[in-house]
Design a protein around this nucleic acid. Structure first.
Length: 421
DNA sequence: TCTGGGGTCCTATTCCTA
DNA sequence: TCTGTAGGAATAGGACCC
């Protein structure tokens, strides 16, 4: 999708048409999530600090973003995709790979399917999109980039909308591209490659694999050597397993109070647990992430004997991990996550019991403590009927209302410049 | 310029155990 | 029983993606 979040805002408010629109965190520490091509013409880009975007384009319309709405539109888009093929691999809300090899008999060649999908999304959903067609995944991604409009300080240039890389012409397409165009080449890898005198994919093609491995690591080197030669045998995977679930938040002002951080852990653990239960997942490794004011980031993890998906159990481990981290310098960002996931065993709901603190870590006292899974189920039932704010950990009760964290609440950084309390 | 949130994957190191 | 070692799991950090 082209400038997806901004395009959805424009769809819901046509008065924004033709104006620079910037969606993202509106506070001092926020970043740009998406912006219209009118804003890009001023040099605004996604992931840019909002403050910088404001300097570049002060007259832009700044919007905080509505994650739920974008998810809803995303589902409609996927609905269109799935009318062509069941082999749809979503990369994000606004991007997906489609394997249409089996659909060509019904709908015509891939290039025609691309035109058809683009036109249907435009007509039925009112949103602009660009489609890349190629024989392998990473090339299709690059083709879609080539299909998009471009905007820089000279103005906006429309893209072709659909860009096809014909079989046999792959290397010709790849050769002039900068190395940063390849998936997996970010600033760090690009710097290392440039030290070897490599700036384009064409130059990368001529470098032996072992030299690349020496420069960027074994797996990464092999991967890049293959991509440069257009070797990519990754399949389109429609149902990829989720590997981790996490919540993290940057505060408008660094937090120094350990008690406040403790409350935040409980709140995030509750949010993670809720999402895990709704996804039917349990996990064994609890992860804590702390970022200080100077951007130095510490992570701590602990693997417990039995998989959990209950807020109090996740919180107790995360609190123990937090106790081992020095927070005196002030915390800019705090995060709680669970990995090492497996599907919850619905056939034996009795297997899990709440085990607090050291007991969780050591796997002690199984069965002695209250069955929190039952409590979690009750919480879920109340929330589905009365909303997420209807029930939650007592420690999150402030001024008569609960501060429950929902996905997308602070998706792109704080929306204020004030402290959370 | 001053850097979000939710992820995945890779690498190096450490620790435990056979 | 002690010691050295190899391998695996856990842990920490970093790079990258949208």
């Amino acid at each position: 999708m082209d400038a997806f979040y901004a395009a959805v805002e424009l769809l819901d408010d046509p008065s924004l048409a033709g104006r620079p629109v910037i969606v993202g965190g509106t506070g001092r520490r926020g970043v740009v999530a998406s912006c219209s091509y009118e804003a890009r013409a001023y040099g605004v880009r996604s992931a840019m600090p909002s403050a910088r975007a404001r300097q570049l384009c002060p007259h832009a319309v700044f919007l905080a973003g509505r994650f739920g709405r974008y998810s809803e539109v995303s589902r409609s888009i996927h609905g269109v995709f799935e009318e062509y093929t069941p082999l749809v691999e979503g990369i994000s809300l606004d991007e997906a790979f489609l394997d249409v090899t089996g659909a060509e008999r019904l709908f015509g060649p891939a290039a025609e399917i691309a035109v058809s999908i683009r036109s249907r999304i435009r007509c039925e959903l009112g949103l602009p999109c660009s489609v890349g067609v190629a024989g392998v995944k990473f090339l299709a991604k690059l083709a879609s980039e080539a299909a998009k409009p471009r905007a820089d300080l000279r103005g906006i240039v429309e893209g072709p909308g659909v860009f096809v890389i014909e079989p046999g012409r792959e290397l010709e397409f790849l050769r002039p591209l900068p190395i940063e165009a390849l998936w997996g080449v970010g600033p760090a890898t690009a710097t290392r490659l440039r030290r070897l005198g490599i700036t384009t994919v064409g130059e990368l093609m001529g470098v032996p694999e072992d030299v690349l491995q020496g420069a960027v690591g074994r797996a990464h080197g092999t991967h890049l050597a293959r991509l440069a030669r257009c070797i990519d045998d990754r399949e389109v995977e429609p149902n990829r397993d989720v590997k981790s679930v996490s919540h993290e938040e940057t505060y408008p002002v660094d937090v120094h109070d350990p008690d406040q951080l403790g409350d935040e852990i409980v709140r995030m653990a509750d949010a993670v647990a809720t999402r895990m239960r709704r996804a039917g997942l349990v996990g064994r490794t609890i992860n804590l992430k702390v970022r200080y004011g100077d951007f130095v980031t510490r992570t701590r993890a602990q693997t417990v004997p039995e998989a959990v998906a209950e807020g109090p159990a996740i919180a107790s481990v995360a609190l123990a991990l937090l106790a081992g981290v020095d927070v005196a310098a002030g915390v800019r960002l705090l995060g709680v996550g669970v990995s090492n996931l497996t599907a919850a065993d619905v056939s034996s709901p009795e297997q899990l019991h709440l085990e607090l603190g050291a007991d969780v870590a050591a796997g002690r006292n199984r069965g002695r403590l209250v069955g929190w899974r039952h409590a979690a189920g009750a919480v879920e039932a109340v929330r589905s009927r009365y909303g997420d704010d209807a029930v939650g950990p007592a420690s999150l009760l402030k001024d008569g209302s609960l501060r429950i964290k929902r996905p997308g609440d602070t998706q792109w950084g704080p929306t204020t410049n004030e402290t959370p309390e």
